[in-house]
C-alpha cells in the first residue's frame, strides 16, 4: 500500500499506509492525524481537511476542480499548494507523498 506522510503544524510526523482508492482525508483520520478534522465527512463543504501538498507530490495528484478551488479561496490559511484532503484519492503514484497541515482548520 502507498505510504503517506503527514506533518502536523507542531512538527509531529505521522506515517501511514493507505489503500488505493481511499481518500487522503480518511487515511489521515484513520491514522489519528489531529490536524485533519473532516467534519463534513468528505462532502467538500466544511473545509476542515485543508492541507498543503509538498511540491514533490503535486504533479502526482489530479488538480482541484472549480468548486474546490472556489472554496479554498475563502480559507484564511490557504497557500498556492493548498488542497482539501477529502478530494485527493490515494493512488500508487502517491507513495511517499508528504502533506503539511495548517495551524488550524475551519
Amino acid at each position: 500500500m502507498p505510504k503517506l506522510i503527514f506533518v502536523e503544524h507542531d512538527g509531529t510526523t505521522v506515517e501511514t499506509e493507505a489503500p488505493v482508492g481511499e481518500t487522503v482525508m480518511r487515511a489521515a483520520r484513520a491514522a489519528g492525524v489531529a490536524g485533519i478534522v473532516g467534519e463534513c465527512g468528505g462532502g467538500m463543504s466544511c473545509l476542515t481537511c485543508h492541507c498543503y501538498v509538498a511540491r514533490a507530490a503535486i504533479d502526482r495528484i489530479a488538480p482541484a476542480g472549480p468548486v474546490e478551488r472556489e472554496l479554498l479561496g475563502c480559507v484564511v490559511t490557504a497557500q498556492e499548494n493548498s488542497r482539501l484532503a477529502c478530494q485527493i484519492v490515494v493512488t500508487a503514484a502517491l507513495d511517499g507523498a508528504r502533506f503539511d497541515l495548517p495551524a488550524w482548520q475551519g
Binding site: C40, S45, C74, G106
Partner: peptide
C-alpha cells in the same frame, strides 16, 4: 466563539466566506 475561514450552515451546508458572500449552495 472560535476561529473559522467560513460560516457553514450545519443544516444543509450552505457556506459563506468571511466577506459574507455565499460560496456554496449544495
Amino acid at each position: 466563539c472560535g476561529r473559522a475561514s467560513q460560516f457553514r450552515c450545519k443544516y444543509h451546508g450552505w457556506t459563506f466566506n468571511l466577506e459574507g458572500k455565499n460560496v456554496l449552495v449544495q
